[in-house]
Each structure stands twice: as structure tokens, then as C-alpha cells.
Amino acid sequence: MIGNLIGVLFDGIAYGSLLFVISIGLSVTMGLMNFVNLAHGAFAMLGGYVCVVLMTRLGVPFLASLPVAFAAAALAGAALERTLYRRLYQATHLDQVLFSIGLVFMSIAGATYVFGSQQQPVQLPALLRGQVRLLGIDFGSYRLFLIAVVIAVTLALTWLIERTRFGAAIRASVDNQQASAGLGINVYRVFSLTFALGSGLAGLGGGLGIDVLGLDPTFPLKYMVYFLLVVAVGGAGTIKGPLIAALLLGVFDVAGKYYAPQIGSFIIYVAMVVMLLIFPRGLVGRRA
């Protein structure tokens, strides 16, 4: 029973970690430029397909395909930010929502056209496939690997934002765009770079997530709520907030599906609405 509980907790944390990697870029987009981007999942899907193509068609090993997924999604993010997203920073939230829903539809149709509507297979390396036995409980190696990746990503991001000059520019732009621009920070360049970084992380998450979340053309729509939820509940523009929210969501989702499969996802949505009503600015409000 206890072993079960720990297993569910562990799976939930692994799942939440994955959601965190994918969603953290969205936190920046919403927090920094106040842009409601429903198409964030499309970048994750792109990363996933890049991994699949590299592995199945070119025989690249899984681990080597992940950095490529990151780079491809980051490039796509930078290109779209420069050409399209930038025009809509000053637009209303409604326009941003419509624009990004349009992108979602296009990405779904595009992916269906190129890859077909079926689920994509993933071949994990032997090293990550088995179980690891710790204190009498079996842990999936791949899930351990996921958690390790997220710890690494979180540490790297925290270092980037807390310790580097670029990070200081991000924090300043988040706090007050006009004052930062007045101090000579090129806010738009900062945002381009962070948008690319966020898209890249989403792509990385998409590649990592093929085994856990699955990969088919409806991916951006299917998980849209989850990404939005992580950011809206956690608090846009922070790292800590989405991390807590993603882990909570992961644990509750896995536990719900395990213990109450009938009403599992129902509980998630109820919890989301309740959380949003209690904390309209997210768990870690940026401007308290």
C-alpha cells in the first residue's frame, strides 16, 4: 500500500517535471510580454516530431536527438516571434487568443499532412528502459531520468536568471518594461531570446515526453489546458510558481487516474477552477 503510494507519487513527480519543462517558456511569454499564447504546445509537438524523424529515419540515438529537438523548436520560436508574435504584443487578449488558436489549428493540420494522424513510436535506449530497485521499491529508470533532467534544467534556469547579466535584464523587463528600456535594455531583443529559449525547452519537453504523453497531431490541443493551467495556477513570470503547480498537477493527475479513474480528469478541472478563484494571480504572485 505504502509502496503503491510512493510509486504514484514518483510517477506524478516525473509527469509534473515534464509538464514543467514544456510550460516554463509559456510562463515567460505570459509574464514578460503579457501574451496569452495557446499555441505553446505546438513547439513541444515540433520537438517531438524532430526526435521521431531523427530516430526512425536517420538512426540517431534518442539522447542525441534531444538537443536537436531543442534547437529546432528554438529556431522555429525565434522565427515566429520575429515575424508574427511581435506584431501582437500590444493587441488585446482576445486577438492573441484567436491568433494562437489559428496557429494550433495550422500545426495540427500540418502535422497530420506530413506524419499522418497515428501515434508515433519511440525507441528508448536500453539504459533507460528498465526499473531501478531502491529500498525495495521499483522506480522506472526513464522517470528517474526525467526528474534528473528537470533538476538540471531548473538549476540552469535559476543560474541564468539569478546570476547572469542576461538574467538581470529579463528580471528587469518583467518588473517594468518601460523603465528597463529607459535604462538601455533592449527589451524586444531580451524577449526574442527568452521566447526562443522557452520554445526550445518546450521542444526538449516534447521529445522527452513522447514516451509519457504520446505524440500525435492533436498534441497541442490535448495538452493545451495543462500548460495553461501550470502557468495560470503557478503564476506567470516566475520559475518557482510553475514548478510547484506542475508538480502538484502531475501528482494529482496520476493519483486521480490511479485511484479514481472514473472522475480523475474531472477533479483536475474542478481543482483548477477553485485554485484560480482563490489565487487569481497564481500561487506565486509576481506583483503581490
Binding site: L98, I101, G102, F105, M106
Partner: peptide, 15 residues
């Protein structure tokens, strides 16, 4: 195709 044109028209409408 329908879904693609739908998305594209939405993007163009907003822009």
C-alpha cells in the same frame, strides 16, 4: 485541409 485553412484565416483575420 479545412482545419489548415481555418487556422490560416484566423491568423490573417487577427493580423
Amino acid at each position: 485541409y479545412w482545419q489548415f485553412w481555418l487556422g490560416l484565416s484566423l491568423v490573417l483575420l487577427v493580423l
